[in-house]
Nucleic acid binder design. Structure first.
Length: 500
RNA sequence: GCGUUCGUAGUGUAGUGGUAGCAUGUCGGCCUUCCAAGCCGGUGACCCGGGUUCGAUCCCCGGCGGACGCACCA
């Protein structure tokens, strides 16, 4: 069979093998920006989450979970209500939609549009008779496009679905401060859904309207940011950094430099922030991405979010969509707690060092992963079509820990009751050893192997006639297709050493 | 959101104003001592709504969805 090594083959694999389905609900034609994960996709996602949770526990992070719906005041305080509502101009004739502020900035490069009130923008448009670029119809009124999904709770209380998990984590600060016994930095993360009403979602799960976030937060003192204990151990580690000044010179390949060097050259400002970049890099690397397709890209000052003092995106190079952000590292300063302190009348000014009189609002450093984007990019870079004998085969070269199945067990032939019985017994014992295993006998042995290759199963066991005599089986490696003979008693130990 | 274009079994496709063919998958059976073998049998589709028509999967209108371009992407 000829299998083409192209993106269409990959996209159909996602559907055929149960990784990603959608837009959901498919039987009703779908709603743009919403996707479902099938069993394989969900298994992969859970394996990623398990790996992350295990690592973060080791790094001293606690996990929290907050409601996905929060009252209006939260989003007033966070700034999202103001900044997530875009002023737009809709042409009455051709329905073209443009961002009012961006459109004005282009029309009047010398004026400071950012921060201008809608009324002033409106006047500017009216007085200068600005027109739609497509059909030359004069623009009318500025309308609001809200990127947050609005809802009502109880009898008419306005609330919004969270556009990020981070803000909901910050609302727990005083609880966390007590809970962690004021040991700074307070390290915490939250995994969960966030919602954004994208104008036109595209690129599959990369820009969904309901998506996952996995966000780490450090609540940290100003002094500690500059003198950060854990920084020492990682300061020599090189990372692929592409700062915004390089980008201005149209450079798009990162430089491998260490945190120490980046701080010396003023590319980075704070050791604690450098540590966050390192942590993001570490968590990305353990998922098995090859080095060449990872880079950190710094936001230029006008690209940054409203809360950020510094921001770097960790990006993965994809075939289908170019560089894709899977993680953003943000220096949110004291912006969030300052605002929530003001709006809630809480006092978040606390002593974070040895001097009880010196009080400050904690700084926040954030590492925000998008698990959906991890899943997509990981699958794309694991996807391989390679020669196998006369034909070729599709292999998902996921690291063993992440594969939906760790082990598959087959009888060499299914019309031999002894072979199938032994294979089923081995399957049972593997399940009992809690190795994620899969039994299959439907098809010739070659087909059984290929099915598992498409799912990324790292190991396949085949029970043959020799097995009936000496209790050994063949263990086949996914990538090399090489087989070794092992005694059944050694199986679980052997497999477990490979998946750690 | 606008423009162009497309929408047929699970997947990939052919085709038609008289309800559809191929490949592959999948299921059952036979066969098979290691990499998508073979044989037999089964399964399964025209995105949704309206219109024109005796009759629409095909033509027209609207919607939904995908791709590409523009805009948007804190």
């Amino acid at each position: 069979m000829i299998i083409e090594d192209n993106i269409e083959t990959f996209n159909s694999l996602l559907k055929r093998r149960g990784f990603i389905w959608g837009p959901s609900p498919e039987i009703y034609g779908g709603l743009a920006g919403f996707y479902s994960y099938g069993p394989a996709g969900m298994a992969l996602k859970n394996n990623i989450l398990t790996l992350f949770r295990r690592e973060l526990r080791a790094f001293g992070f606690g996990e929290v979970e907050c409601p996905t719906i929060m009252p209006e005041i939260v989003w007033k305080a966070s700034g999202h209500l103001e900044r997530f509502i875009d002023p737009v101009l809709k042409c009455e004739k051709c329905d073209t939609l443009v961002r009012a502020d961006k459109f004005l900035q282009e029309s009047f490069p010398d004026l400071m549009i950012d921060g201008m009130s809608y009324e002033k923008m409106q006047d500017l448009i009216h007085n200068n008779e600005l027109k739609c670029q497509k059909c030359d119809t004069p623009f009318g009124k500025i309308e609001e496009y809200n990127l947050m999904l609005k809802t009502e709770v109880g009898a008419g209380n306005i609330a919004y679905l969270r556009p990020e998990t981070a803000t909901t984590t910050y609302l727990l600060f005083n609880r966390l401060d007590q809970d962690t016994r004021k040991q700074y930095p307070v390290k915490v993360f939250q995994y969960g859904k966030a919602y954004r009403n994208e104008i036109s979602p595209r690129q599959q799960v990369l820009r969904m309207r309901a998506f996952d976030q996995f966000e780490l937060q450090l609540f940290i003192g100003k002094d500690q940011e500059m003198d950060f204990e854990d920084y020492e151990a990682i300061k020599k580690v090189k990372m692929p950094l592409l700062d915004w000044r390089l980008q201005e010179q149209h450079v798009d390949t990162p430089k491998m430099i260490s945190s120490e060097e980046a701080l010396n050259k003023k590319i980075l400002k704070k050791p604690a922030y450098a540590y966050c970049l390192h942590l993001a890099f570490y968590l990305t690397k353990i998922l098995g991405y090859p080095d060449e397709i990872i880079r950190f890209r710094q936001h230029s000052p006008n690209e940054r979010a409203h809360y950020a003092d510094d921001a770097w995106d960790l990006e993965i190079k994809t075939t289908q969509f170019g560089w894709v952000e899977i993680c953003g590292v943000h220096d949110r300063t004291d912006y969030d707690l300052k605002r929530h302190g003001e709006f809630s009348n809480q006092n978040f000014e606390i002593s974070m060092g040895n001097d009880p009189k010196k009080k400050e609002i904690p700084q926040i450093l954030e590492i925000a992963f998008g698990p959906d984007r991890i899943i997509y990019t990981l699958l794309e870079c694991a996807f391989t079509v390679e020669e196998a004998g006369k034909e070729n085969r599709i292999v998902l070269k996921l690291i063993p820990e992440l594969a939906p199945n760790t082990l598959a067990i087959f009888p060499l032939k299914k019309n031999n009751a002894q072979l199938t019985a032994l294979a089923k017994n081995i399957y049972k014992s593997m399940i009992e050893a809690r190795i994620i295993s899969f039994y299959d006998e439907k098809g010739a042995i070659g087909k059984l192997y290929r099915r598992q290759d498409e799912l990324g199963t790292p190991f396949c066991i085949t029970v043959d006639h020799q097995s009936l005599e000496d209790n050994t089986v063949t263990l086949r490696d996914r990538d090399s297709m090489q087989q070794i003979r092992l005694n059944v008693s050694e199986l679980s130990k052997h497999v477990k050493t490979k998946i750690i």
